[in-house]
Amino acid sequence: MSNELIDLDGLGMTYAADSGPVEALSGIDLKVGRGEFVSLVGPSGCGKSTLLRIIAGLRPATRGSVRVAGRPVTRPIADVGMVFQAPILLKWRSILDNVLLPAELAGKDAGRYRDRAQHLLQTVGLGEFAAKLPRELSGGMQQRASLCRALLLDPPLLLMDEPFGALDAMTRDEMNLELLRIWGETGNAARKTVLFVTHSISEAVFLSDRIVVMTPRPGRIAAVRTVDLPRPRTVEVRASAAFGQLSLEIFRTLTGS
């Protein structure tokens, strides 16, 4: 078994718009190892979100190949947890029932996942909110619930599309720490592979093992930077000189200056 979970080879995507074909992604070559935390940063409209959807098998690539766990992706892959910018919880379901939704959709016995769902909610501090409706929770709490939903079936791969982009800066920092805790707490062997789309350079530096910097449309890979900051990442790491230096370099790559 190869060590790569995701293998993108010459991936490109062109879609038809009213004004003619639009090239969204071009010549993407990227390998993501098992247990690796990789962020995608780039300007708006560079195809980052499209790339996540292609990897999940929700949209077909028009060129090149996508492999997840060695298998070509031709249709939605079930072994994936997705978190979007909006929590998109079902507003008529309790938080617990929302977290259980993947089990129901995947045709599994939701009853068997109740304990796990409850446990996940507890780890993100929502244990007492299991019976509440989404509208009774703040935006940050809803996004935590949405993270629990993504983790319910214990997928080896997490695809996160600007999950904390709509939150205020303080909640975002808090969620970053929480995400790392959840990601790291299972130990190296069972660590999930995370592909994390963000607009925020500091968020990417704080979280990632590697950062993929993308160009404006058509999205290409401008640079891949390894983040060699020590783990566990703490607030102190964020204040370090190395953190600032790396952020600056990524900023320069992004803006081409």
Binding site: A56, P76, A78, I88, L105, A106, G107
Partner: peptide, 25 residues
């Protein structure tokens, strides 16, 4: 929400299930 439907597709949920659990409510 189209992302809600993406979630349904990720888990290969059959059309009737999406209908009963998401669209109808």
């Amino acid at each position: 929400d189209p992302e809600m439907l993406d979630l349904g597709r990720v888990f290969s949920a059959p059309k009737w299930k999406i209908f009963a659990k998401i669209r109808l409510p």
